[in-house]
């Protein structure tokens, strides 16, 4: 279970998150929505261990382990996975290599032997088929020259392969057309099970039409200002964030 308690985060002395509380149990899907600059991506980055953010107060625990002192790779070994809003291009590093070394890093942490090359190809091809990706993706450099949609699909491929227990998806729907959105959502839904937690960060309801969350949170100016079930997303889509922000200000 992920437990975030009164989390305050700043970057270059500017406060971004101003006291966040969040609990995600195994099997649950939570969505965080909010206007631009509300701190959604900061939360995703802090969870995955990006170093330029300072945790000024509060705590982050996953499966009872304090995340704050852990490096990004240690967090990945614990089961966290961040699907990047802007996946990074890495020229000269083949996608196949990244996928294989990431999987082997996980297996090593679990005390397992490295995966056999043939077995690996068979597993990765099966996942690629689900995402309608052809073999050429394996031999291209990581995200280099990929379209926005291809990059997001590549993130989900990594997700399917690494099978993390906590998936943080930062605006995975941005830059996707309807067909690509369906494919990506199908991939994410395949990952849903009673042991896995998913945190969706999004601007729009449309992703939530395909992946129905158990809880929707509204983040504004570094604070959670509303919470509800998946129907809250429809209300937000119809009315915008402003009524919620004003209501919170009036409280």
């Amino acid at each position: 279970m992920l437990i975030i308690n009164k989390l305050q985060v700043s970057i270059q002395n500017k406060a971004i998150l101003k006291g966040i509380d969040l609990k995600i149990k195994p099997g649950e899907v939570h969505a965080i929505m909010g206007p631009n600059g509300s701190g959604k991506s900061t939360l995703a980055n802090v969870l995955s261990g990006r170093e330029e953010y300072d945790i000024t107060a509060g705590t982050l625990h996953y499966q009872g382990v304090d995340l704050a002192p852990l490096t990004p790779d240690e967090r990945a070994h614990l089961g966290l996975f961040l699907s990047f809003q802007y996946p990074v291009e890495i020229p000269g590093v083949s996608n196949l290599y990244l996928l294989k070394s990431a999987l082997n890093a996980k297996r090593k942490h679990q005390g397992l032997d490295e995966i056999d090359a043939i077995d690996f190809l068979s597993v990765v091809r099966e996942k690629m088929k689900l995402l309608q990706m052809d073999d050429s993706y394996l031999y291209r450099d990581v995200n280099t020259g990929f379209s926005g949609g291809e990059k997001k699909r590549n993130e989900i491929l990594q997700l399917l392969l690494l099978e993390p227990s906590l998936c943080i998806l930062d605006e995975t729907d941005s830059g996707l057309d309807i067909d690509a959105l369906r494919i990506v959502a199908k991939g994410i839904n395949l990952m849903r099970n009673e042991n896995r937690s998913i945190l969706l960060i999004t601007h729009y309801q449309r992703l939530l039409d395909y992946i129905k969350p158990d809880v929707v949170h509204v983040l504004s100016d570094g604070k959670m200002i509303a919470e509800g079930d998946y129907q809250l997303a429809a209300v937000l889509e119809a009315e915008g964030y402003e009524p919620f922000i004003q209501k919170k200000a009036g409280d």
Binding site: F84, V88, A105
Partner: peptide, 29 residues
Amino acid sequence: DEEALFYLRSRGLSNEIARQLLIFGFARS
């Protein structure tokens, strides 16, 4: 590239291996 380093580490690769991979990638590309 710190952004690329973070990306690789978030996939479970150690700092040392991620750095080596980026150096190799720089030459290989």
